[in-house]
């Protein structure tokens, strides 16, 4: 009933990904279609490093919701971004166990090295820095999460090497470790990065 103007047209994200879309929708029972909301947000974010308002509206349309509902859900979570993050999104855990292992100093180090403050992305769009809460790596603290990959027990030298590698646009193998009982085993071979 209100006079809505159509938005400028953007090519829908899922226009050429219909199969993927159907696969995601098919995961959930028919009456639970709305459950696909988070996976669809993830899908967009992995590709575009953020979820724009146009995508929010597209997802709303797919699920038969109002865009407001999608936005309400999306903004509830810490890891959906409204604005694009850099190619290397550095997430530093500063919660207690990591803090006890030097995470605050690690955070300061990153701020200085990258000339970024919490929440910023550099002008080239390479690095974003974000402080996050406990990542479940307390036994192998401190931890730095780069995009979806954990780098654990990040010492100053490891951190330097990691930054250097990313500046060369390479991402080394994750340093997934186990600690405790399971420490002696060989490091993980596969890596977690997609």
């Amino acid at each position: 009933m209100s006079s809505r103007q159509p938005l400028p047209t953007v090519t829908p994200f899922f226009a050429d990904k219909q199969e993927r879309l159907s696969e995601i929708l098919a995961r959930y029972p028919e009456y639970g279609r709305r459950s696909a909301l988070m996976p669809l947000l993830w899908e967009v974010q992995r590709a575009e490093r953020h979820v724009s308002e146009a995508r929010v509206e597209e997802i709303a349309e797919i699920l038969g919701l109002h865009a407001t509902e999608v936005k309400g859900v999306m903004s509830f979570y810490g890891t959906y971004h409204e604005h694009p993050v850099g190619r290397y999104h550095l997430q530093v855990c500063r919660t207690l166990s990591c803090s006890l292992a030097g995470a605050d100093t690690l955070a300061d180090f990153l701020e200085d090295e990258l000339d970024l403050v919490n929440g910023e992305t550099d002008p080239e769009g390479r690095f974003s820095l974000q402080y996050v809460e406990c990542l479940g790596s307390c036994g192998t603290a401190p931890v730095l999460q780069v995009n979806d990959t954990y780098f654990e027990r990040v010492s100053r030298s490891r951190c330097r090497a990691l930054l250097d590698a990313m500046r060369r646009d390479t991402l080394p193998e994750p340093t997934l470790e186990r600690g405790g009982d399971n420490e002696p085993n060989a490091p993980d071979q596969e890596g977690g990065a997609a």
Binding site: C138, G139, A141, R178, G180, N182, E183
Partner: peptide, 14 residues
């Protein structure tokens, strides 16, 4: 049990 903080071998112990 999980142990973290300044200990010699932090980690998970069953």
């Amino acid at each position: 049990y999980q142990v973290s903080g300044p200990v010699a071998r932090p980690g998970v112990y069953e």
